Simulated scan of single mutants.
Amino acid sequence: MKTKNFLILIATISLVLGILIYWREYATRDQVTLARVLLWQILIWLPWILMFLGFKTLIKKTRTLTYGRALVVAIGFVWVALHFAWFFNLSATISPYLDLPGSKYGVYRYFFVFWTLIDFGILWFVIDKLWWTKEAKMTSPLLFELTRGGKKHFCEPSQIHWLAAENYYTKLFTTEGIFLMRKPLKSFHDVLPEETFKKIHRSTIINVDFVSELARGTGSTLEVIMKDGTKRRVSKSFIKDITHFFKDRTY
């Protein structure tokens, strides 16, 4: 799951909850504005973005551990408790319902039930997307059925050197030659093992096992040189990630 999509999810939860709370507490609408309620909700759920980024790193490091899943779930429960404390303290400070009749520390009793359920729901969703779904993708056998000259070829990911977007097609450069598939590059990016296949440009994905050199060009440009001598430019937005990846991988 991409960070951008999770950010949209959290923003949607914040806005929907804010609107529902404002609608539910109709008796206080003359004292509370919708804008204040929405801002309060955004601040309450914003820490989940940082937690999501932390979970991505945590799951990568614990995936191979025997009790990795249990550790991730346990840390998730701790996070829910910490988020609950954040919600309580923030509401006691800036809640638009602070000191209004029927509220205590800026919240109503039913708030706690909904927030706890939503927290556990998000936790399950994040673990499912970052661990179990990814794990299934990694362990499932994968073959690409490629056609050339009326003949079918079955290609494993390890046989692919690099891929390039070409209009509505994707060109695959493999150990068996060059093939063209009527599928967008993104569809390959979603299924290829992320440990070996790295995006270096919006139109290029490389198999790092077939890279022989990283070469600096003029200015701050960077090129990837494949073992067959092919040179592919690295987009500025990917230079840092690719450089760090090969640095960590080099002895």
Rank of each mutant, 00 (worst) to 15 (best):
V37S: 03
K60W: 07
S95W: 10
A11M: 04
P157L: 09
V72K: 08
K236A: 09
L214A: 05
A81E: 07
L143T: 12
G150T: 02
F179P: 04
S220G: 05
T116Q: 08
L214P: 01
R24Y: 15
L214W: 02
W162H: 14
F112Q: 10
K186E: 06
I19Y: 13
R233N: 08
F245E: 00
S237M: 11
T170P: 04
R216V: 00
V32F: 07
I42D: 04
G106Y: 15
K227I: 05
K198N: 02
W131A: 08
E166L: 05
V113C: 08
G54M: 10
G102R: 10
S140V: 05
I127P: 04
F154T: 09
T3F: 13
L38H: 06
L172N: 04
I160E: 01
S235L: 03
K171Q: 09
A165G: 01
F238T: 02
F114S: 12
E195V: 03
H161F: 08
T64P: 01
R69W: 13
H201S: 07
T250Q: 15
S235D: 00
R29W: 03
R24E: 15
I42E: 04
D248I: 09
D30W: 13
R29S: 01
T139V: 15
K231H: 08
S235M: 01
L98C: 02
Y251F: 12
L90R: 07
S237I: 09
T64V: 08
K56V: 06
R69N: 10
V224R: 10
F77N: 07
L117D: 01
A35F: 13
E194N: 09
K61V: 00
V16I: 15
I160L: 01
T230W: 02
G150R: 08
W48C: 05
D30A: 14
V32L: 06
P193A: 06
L130E: 10
W48G: 03
K137P: 00
V73Y: 09
V107K: 11
G76K: 04
T64D: 07
S203E: 07
K247P: 02
P96C: 03
G177S: 07
A27C: 07
K129C: 00
W79F: 15
K151I: 03
D119C: 10
L20A: 06
T221W: 01
V208M: 06
A11E: 08
Y26I: 09
I10F: 04
I59W: 07
V73D: 06
V211L: 05
P141L: 03
Q159N: 05
T12P: 03
E223Y: 14
F88I: 09
G106S: 10
F154W: 12
V72T: 05
P157Y: 03
T64S: 11
A74H: 09
H161K: 13
A215E: 14
L65H: 05
I118Q: 14
Q31W: 12
I118P: 12
L58R: 02
D128H: 12
P47Y: 09
E135R: 11
K171E: 08
V37G: 04
T33L: 06
K247N: 11
